[in-house]
Amino acid sequence: MSVSPPQQKIWWNEPVPKSELIWVIIAFIWGLIMFFAMVWWHIYGEQNLSNESYRITAEDFSAKTEAMVEKYKVREESGYPVVHPPPGEDIYLIARLWQWWPILELEKGQSYRLHLSSLDWMHGFSLQPVNINVQVHPDYEMVLTITPDSAGEFGIICNEYCGIGHHLMLGRMYVVDERGN
């Protein structure tokens, strides 16, 4: 029994029953498949995080974002600037207590280098209903190239607890079919 010492003192020389041996081999091979699936997806898959990130101060990130807003602002909504940068541009999104700033307006099918950082605590970038979720740290600037393939209005939820206003921390992103629409 499992509550008494092994019946065979030299238990490590006992033969392994075939059913167990086969299962161990199958499970091991399945592990190899799952491991190489991740590697394979890095080469052939379309959804991978870049390994590009930098250390940055809150002031520097804030300045970069404000420069972008100044250059490409097209209108204002509920007190938030709406920014429509040209395709291929570097775009910036600030996470801070308790907002995502500014509102980005992108074009469908175009790629952008999205820079994410927090000015204060940790936040969670959660783009809905697409359901892309990324951790946002202060002092780290993460860069990912996104290519929106659906148009419409998207919500950005904070999904890392960041204090009492956490559930009010919402942002927005627009994806339009062609410039201006």
């Binding site: 509920s78 809905q128 209903p129 359901n131 919500g155 950005i156 607890y161 009010l168 919402l170 927005r172």
Partner: peptide, 19 residues
């Protein structure tokens, strides 16, 4: 469906930019 964990109110009635 994207519902966040550790979140008091996903209806976000008071948020400026609700989703």
């Amino acid at each position: 469906l994207g519902v966040p964990r550790r979140h008091w109110d996903i209806s976000q009635a008071d948020a400026i930019l609700p989703y």
